[in-house]
Design a protein around this nucleic acid. Structure first.
Length: 624
RNA sequence: GCCGCCGUGGCUUAGCUGGUAGAGCGGGUGAUUCGUAAUCACCAGGUCGCGGGUUCAAAUCCCGCCGGCGGCUCCA
């Protein structure tokens, strides 16, 4: 409940027009003039109850006494709050307040009317006071929900710079004319400016391409993935996992839910500004993990680690991580409540080793994204750092900035309020100029202590390590989002949209010119599939034109037409999407072997999974 | 979470100053067997997001809820 108390020479009001929620009032109460009142403007809020009303009454009584007012005007004033209760409750509480104050002279202005009023405020020091009253329940709830980190963040002050060619300039002074995307990103980060009111293109695409879709039967932000989507996701998952394992990480698996009462976890939760899903068990309450930190840190806490083992890397692909993001923030594959994130933690013995690993993992992230199909032109780099760390490590940050030779957005904090001192992110800027983080690495200086993680040094003494958090690609779903948005932006420039060949659910579509060539087409497809290339056959009774069109709208990279000419020549006529324009297709004659070689070369080193659907289109369901 | 806009067959949508739903795609059947971006015909398919209310009558008006999008907020 919000109260605004005004001690006045007089107050007069007149009810003009009833709203839908207006209470019935006698003619006599519709207008009023009261001399020397204490006017209490009141807004009843959600969660308010009788106790709150009582508190309000004693508050009003106290102030009335203090200023020597004998008359009180209770004036419903909705504009004090953006969290109003129902009108019914408001009227009930107002009437109750009126009654409890009846030892004074009380006037209650009618609820739910447009009213004109005049007031003459006395202007002495106590003549204007405001009060905010809340039910105990609501207070406790707020206390629970607002973690320390969320509160701290509100207080944190950021300073923004651009680091370029080893020089740090403030954002205001930086000349963005050659870096329009960085400008968009900086605007997005600093001023939070948005220029759009459209459905993001990838949402339409993920549905149309039968990759993913909303699942209304679940909570918002939990998607369903169709066979093609599952394939794409699964390939990305396998690839990023492989990258991390090759980098030297040991893959582990940890639970997805943890006790809320566990003392260590509890303190960690308080440092992490995220909202959790809470699961009620028989006796205890659990929360769903929002990253793999919990399981991995607990594992490391119990492990015996010596200096010889460092840097020690462990990795898990979280399927899933859960974050109860606010409703208004959820969009397509960009921001979810359940998502898959590669999460690698590296235990290092000191800051020197931490920096070295940070640099390595920066490079690892660049490589990982590049292989996925996202080049440095597709994202912008942000570094978040405490002022102290920056001052002591200017040279190091300069080296970092030289890896990609791109200007970097720096956010500097005058004090540390997160668990890390340094962090980078690669931020994808989408078709609507919105930015979201993909890869990220952080140097954590807090959690080794909190989780009691230690290693034995050369001298036999237990020592505290630092920990790096690394997500080499960012959330897998977000990678798909970025690829779809990128394809859309390409299409706007006249380039046929497509996924990288290794991620394309169907890599080759074989189209027989008529039923007479269906068997040959099936043979070709079989040959391709045996050589680990995803090929299917459009065996539907449709015209050639129709089949070509459909193959194109599915973004299939290679479309091979087979008819009399091809059978005679022993070659396929292949339309190569990557080399085509939207207006004119690039068509090449090649043998099956040549096609295989070409695709093999393109997909070298990348994971493969077989076609997730029947080879014949006629046998394939449509999921939408 | 707050505010705004939206929600019609599997998909895209017309109808919305109230008078009990119309199309295209997709699907089925038949014809057609085709040389690079939508072959033709016929048929089936709709609790108009859900729940209340107003009305003789609601897809259409009102209220609540759910879902989507956008803004605010926030972002590991």
């Amino acid at each position: 409940m919000k109260l605004l108390l005004v001690h006045a020479d007089y107050m007069e009001y007149e009810a003009k027009k009833a709203t839908k929620i207006a209470e019935d009032v006698d003619e006599g109460r519709k207008s009023m003039r009261v001399e020397e009142p204490l006017v209490a403007f009141v807004a009843v809020e959600k969660g308010d109850d009788e106790k709150v009303a009582e508190k309000a009454v004693s508050e009003i009584r106290a102030v009335a006494k203090k200023v020597g007012a004998e008359r009180v005007v209770l004036y419903p004033y909705a504009h004090l709050s953006s969290n109003l209760s129902s009108p019914e409750l408001a009227i009930r509480l107002l009437k109750m307040m009126e009654e409890k104050l009846s030892d004074l002279e009380v006037y209650r202005a009618p609820f739910g009317w447009y009213k004109a009023f005049k007031i003459s405020c006395k202007g002495h020091p106590l003549s204007e006071l405001s009060r905010e009253l809340r039910s105990q329940q609501v207070e406790e709830l707020d206390e629970k929900e607002l973690t320390q980190a969320l509160r701290d963040e509100e207080k944190a002050k950021s300073y923004w710079y651009i680091l370029h060619d080893g020089k740090l300039v403030s954002v205001e002074e930086f000349d963005f004319s050659n870096y329009p995307k960085l400008k968009k990103f900086a605007d997005y980060e600093i001023s939070k400016r948005r220029a759009v009111d459209r459905v993001p293109p990838h949402v339409e695409l993920m549905k149309r391409l039968q990759i993913a879709d909303y699942e209304e039967a679940s909570d918002s932000g939990h998607m369903r993935y169709y066979p093609k989507g599952r394939l794409v996701k699964s390939l990305l998952e396998e690839f990023v996992t492989r990258k991390c394992v090759e980098y030297g990480a040991m893959e582990v698996e940890t639970p997805i839910m943890y006790s809320r009462d566990h003392p260590t976890l509890r303190r960690y939760l308080e440092r992490f500004p995220a909202r959790q899903y809470i699961i009620k068990g028989d006796k205890r309450e659990f929360f769903l993990r929002f990253a793999a930190c919990f399981g991995q840190f607990l594992m490391c806490s119990d492990a015996v680690i010596t200096y010889r083992n460092l840097p020690l890397k462990i990795y898990e692909l979280t399927r899933y991580s859960f974050r109860k993001e606010q409703r208004g923030e959820l969009v397509g594959l960009r921001r979810l409540r359940a998502f898959t994130m590669p999460d690698m933690h590296t235990i290092v013995k000191d800051m020197e080793q931490a920096k070295k690993e940070f640099m390595n993992q920066y490079r690892l992230s660049v490589e990982t994204l590049r292989a996925i199909g996202l080049t440095p032109e597709d994202y912008e780099v942000a570094i978040r750092v405490t002022k102290d760390f920056y001052e002591e490590n200017k040279e190091f940050l300069k080296e970092i900035s030289e890896i990609l030779k791109k200007p970097i957005l720096i956010e500097m904090w005058d004090r540390r309020f997160f668990y890390f001192v340094l962090k980078f992110e690669f931020n994808f800027v989408d078709a609507l100029d919105k930015a979201s983080a993909l890869s990220t690495v952080q140097i954590d200086v807090e959690n080794a202590e909190r989780y009691d993680i230690s290693y034995v040094g050369k001298d036999g003494e237990k020592k505290r390590p630092y920990i790096l958090h690394c997500s080499a690609s960012g959330a897998i779903e977000r990678c798909i989002y970025a690829l779809l948005e990128k394809a859309y932006m390409n299409a706007e420039r006249g380039k046929p949209p497509m996924l990288p060949v290794w991620l394309s659910p169907v890599q080759v579509r074989v189209i027989p010119i008529s039923e007479n060539f269906l068997d040959t087409a099936l043979e070709v497809a079989e040959k391709l599939n045996k050589r680990l290339i995803r090929a299917d056959v459009d065996d539907r009774d449709e015209t050639l034109n129709k089949k070509v069109r459909d193959a194109s709208t599915e973004w299939i990279p290679y479309v091979a037409v087979i008819g009399k000419k091809e059978v005679e020549e022993g070659k396929l006529t292949v339309t190569i999407r990557a080399e085509s324009e939207l207006e004119k297709q690039k068509r090449v004659k090649m043998s099956v072997e040549e096609l295989i070689d070409r695709i093999k070369k393109e997909c070298e080193g990348m994971p493969f999974k077989p076609l997730p659907l029947p080879v014949k289109l006629s046998e394939r369901p449509s999921f939408r």
